[in-house]
Each structure stands twice: as structure tokens, then as C-alpha cells.
Design a protein around this nucleic acid. Structure first.
Lengths: 142, 142
DNA sequence: CTAGGAACTAGAGCGCGCTCTAGATCAAGC
DNA sequence: GCTTGATCTAGAGCGCGCTCTAGTTCCTAG
């Protein structure tokens, strides 16, 4: 079965920035830091040309970063991937650990949310009462 | 046996740190930054004595911080509270805005979680297959 | 009285993750 | 050729939120 998709024209750094949500600066920074699996291609004039695979990898990086993975861990993970097949178990372990952290984060945020919601309730009540009665409790809620 | 509850014996900075989860350093820092509603009491010798109300306020601060509120916003909120009754609507607005951000954060994290879960699935599959067959796809998943 | 730990102040320092600068080069359109 | 804007490199700088230092003072126990 033939592949209908075009051979994915390489992207400039600007286009890659737009597609990943990273800044151009950040893209160069990530590269310097070794957060890309393979070396990025260059034009004769020295400009970077990103392949689709690079963009996909970067999108995963963005997710990992968004969810709080430190650059150091991301670097470790990238290193494993760069070293090629054979260490999938290790990669899995790393991702699993991160996943657990993400879940903990979500739980923590949900708790915060409920505390804030309670506080919002207190104020909403207070405001409603105030508007109704034009009277504030001098020792009201903080 | 001393009563840790009622007339709420004032707490040392160390005890307050333990109860709020903030460091002693952070407590002093917060005070300098004007993140406390009222001035903290002092002993004759100049040591801080925190009241229960301070601890409660700090616990809210911790939740707000944990959920990503910048110190600057926290400071604004504290300012409103310090100015006393009359600006509850403004406080409510601030908290509501933050609540929306928290919800957005949770949604974002949940999306990350699902991306990561997918990736974990890919690897888990890979590892299982590899253990079963002792064979790795040279162009396997990143 | 003495020792040891907790707390005090003012201010410097730090870790993270970019972000920005400077000065040069490249590439596309007129 | 010239202009304009994107990109290049190496490295400095920054914003945030604490954290740590130095040198001193307080307080409690023995």
C-alpha cells in the first residue's frame, strides 16, 4: 500500500517554533542541551531544517515539560532514546515515575481547587449578604 | 497535659513552619514581602509569636501558591484583606480568576497525563513483545 | 553559670528555564 | 545590487521564589 503523504518537507526553526509552541530561542537552547534525539539537519548556509520526527519528539517534550518534568530528567530520557533500542524498560520506568508525579499533582491541584472554592463561597455569600443588607461584619472573613 | 487547642497559645516560628509546611526562612521572607495580614506579635526578646489566625492565613497562602498563584497576586490579595471589609467583591474576583486558572491547569495536566499514558502503553507493549520474542524493531518507538 | 539550640537581621546567592543581546550571515523579492 | 527579515553563534542576563550566610542574641535545661 503506497504512502499518500508527501515526504514531509523540512521545516525552518520558525515554523517548528510555531508548531511546537516553543520559542525559537528555546529550540536552539534545547538543542544545545542535548534534548533532541538526533542532530538537526542543516542547509548549505547553516540553517536548521527540522524533520517531522523532530517536531513529534518536541511535542512530547513539551508535554513532559508542561507536566513538570525537569529538563534534567528529560535529558536522561532523551539519552536513552538516542542510545537506541534495548533500554525500553528503563524508559518505561522513567515515564511511569513521571506519570505518578503527574497524578499526584492533579490530586494536589484538586485539593487546592476545593479549598479555593470554599473560600470563594465564603466571599460570594458575604457579598450577597452585603448587597442585600448593606452591612458588613467588621470581623468578617479573611 | 497542655491544651494545644483553646486559648490558642502563640506559636514560635519553628512550630509555625511545621504546621504550615513553609520553612522558617520562607516565613520571614513572606513577612518582609507583606504577605501577612497583620503584624506578627513579638516577645520581649524580639521573637515572633504567631497566632492561630496567622497559621490559618498561611495555610491558605500555601494552597494558593501550590496552585500556582504568583507572590505578586498573593500580595494584592493580602493587601485587600488588610484594608478590611468593603472590598469583598474585589477579593472574590481575584479568587475566581485564580480558580479558573487552576481549572485550566488541571485540564492541561490531564491532557499531558493521557499523552504520557499512551507513550507508556507503547513502551509497555514493546517491552512485553521484546521479552516474548527477544527481538527489537530497530526503528522502534522513540 | 554554662552550654546549646532556636531565633534575629540584612542582604547575598542560587537553581531553573529560558530569554535576550550583539554582531554577523543567509535568502527571497524588487 | 539592495533591502528586509529570518537565522546564526556564544554567552550574558533575568524573573521567580525562596534559601543560605554571618554574626548576634535569646532562652531553656542541667
Amino acid at each position: 500500500m503506497p504512502d499518500h503523504r508527501s515526504p514531509a518537507a523540512p521545516l525552518t526553526i520558525g515554523e517548528t517554533a510555531r508548531r511546537t509552541g516553543l520559542s525559537v530561542h528555546a529550540l536552539r537552547f534545547y538543542e544545545r542541551e542535548g534534548l533532541l534525539v538526533g542532530p538537526v539537519e542543516r542547509t548549505a548556509g547553516g540553517r536548521r531544517r527540522y524533520a517531522e520526527a523532530d517536531v513529534e519528539w518536541l511535542r512530547i517534550c513539551v508535554r513532559l515539560r508542561e507536566s513538570g518534568m525537569p529538563l534534567a530528567d528529560l535529558k536522561r530520557f532523551t539519552g536513552l532514546v538516542r542510545r537506541g533500542p534495548g533500554n525500553e524498560a528503563e524508559r518505561l520506568e522513567l515515564l511511569n515515575a513521571h506519570q505518578r508525579r503527574v497524578e499526584a499533582q492533579i490530586r494536589a491541584l484538586e485539593e487546592c481547587r476545593s479549598v479555593i472554592a470554599w473560600k470563594v463561597g465564603v466571599y460570594a455569600d458575604h457579598v450577597a449578604r452585603g448587597e442585600a443588607e448593606g452591612l458588613w461584619d467588621p470581623a468578617g472573613p479573611r
